[in-house]
Structure formats: C-alpha cells, structure tokens
Simulated scan of single mutants.
Amino acid sequence: MKNNTLNGIPATVLETMAEHLIDQPEPVKIRSVEDHAALAAQALWAFACKTGLNRESESVETVVTDFLANLLHLCEQCDPDGDGAGCLNGLLETAMMHYEQECGGNGEELI
C-alpha cells in the first residue's frame, strides 16, 4: 500500500527547507537531522526548478518520485549490466543503514 503523506505537502516547501543552509560555508557541516533534510531539500528544489515542478500545485511526493525515476535511469546507464533497479536498490539499502545510524533509531542524530 502506498503512503501518500508527502502528496499533501506542496513542492515549494522544499525551497523553505533548503533555506536552512543559507549563509553556511561549503562544505556544509552536518550538525543535525535538519541539516541532512535541508541538503536533500536543496537538491530536490534544484531538480524541481529544472523540471517545472517548483509550483505550489505540485507535491513533494511528485518531486521525489520523478527524481527517483531519474536516478533509476542514471543507475541503468552507469551499471555495466544495465540493471538500474538492482543498482538503486543496493544503494537504498546502504542509505537506510546510514539513515538509521544518523537517527539513532529514535529520530535523533547520534553524537
């Protein structure tokens, strides 16, 4: 069953979240889960702007879904076997481990 939680959130929220990083020197020092989310929001907002999804009438779910579809295309082109889904699934498993370590299992970043 599909979780549509992100469907009700307008894509423009990504711009607001990305503003959390304004005035931070690069490379950004990650100090909180908010910093992690802001980095992702910044990348997704740039994608939304390039694809025309940067409107109040579009949802965060649409932006994330379209971005993931593009990641599948990228993985397919970069994988020697052309297995974009297998490549991305492997990356998602590793990303889940990173996420769990960063959240400490309860939504708070480990120190």
Results as ranks from 00 to 15, higher is better:
V63W: 03
Q101I: 01
A85G: 11
E93R: 10
D79W: 01
V64G: 00
P25N: 03
E26M: 08
D83N: 06
A95H: 02
E76A: 15
V64M: 01
V13E: 12
N89P: 12
I9H: 11
L92R: 02
D66N: 15
V60W: 01
L74H: 11
D23H: 14
C78A: 07
L53I: 04
P10H: 12
A95V: 01
H73C: 15
A11T: 13
A18T: 01
A40M: 15
M97C: 08
Q24C: 10
W45H: 02
E109F: 03
A38F: 04
M17D: 10
L6M: 08
L71A: 07
A37D: 11
Y99H: 10
M17K: 11
E76H: 13
S59H: 14
A18L: 03
F47W: 11
P10M: 14
T94W: 01
T51W: 07
H36S: 05
K50E: 15
E34V: 03
H98I: 03
A40F: 15
Y99V: 09
N7T: 15
L110D: 14
D35Q: 08
L53V: 07
L6V: 05
L6N: 02
E61P: 10
A41I: 12
I30M: 04
K50M: 13
G107R: 06
A40S: 12
T65P: 05
A40R: 08
A46E: 12
P10T: 09
G90Q: 11
L71W: 02
L14M: 05
T51G: 06
T16S: 06
L71C: 13
C87V: 06
P25K: 07
I22F: 11
S32N: 05
L88A: 00
G84I: 05
V13Y: 12
E109A: 07
G105R: 04
G8K: 14
G52E: 09
F67D: 00
D79R: 02
N70A: 14
L53E: 06
H98M: 01
C75M: 07
G90R: 12
C87Y: 09
N7R: 15
G107Y: 07
T16V: 05
E58R: 05
G82E: 04
L88K: 00
E100F: 04
A11P: 14
T16L: 04
L39T: 02
H98L: 04
L92S: 00
A41H: 06
D79N: 07
M1S: 14
S59N: 13
T94I: 02
H20M: 03
T65H: 10
P27L: 01
W45G: 03
T94G: 01
L39A: 00
E19Q: 13
N89Q: 15
N7M: 13
V64C: 03
A41V: 11
P25I: 03
F67Q: 00
H36P: 00
V63S: 05
G84H: 05
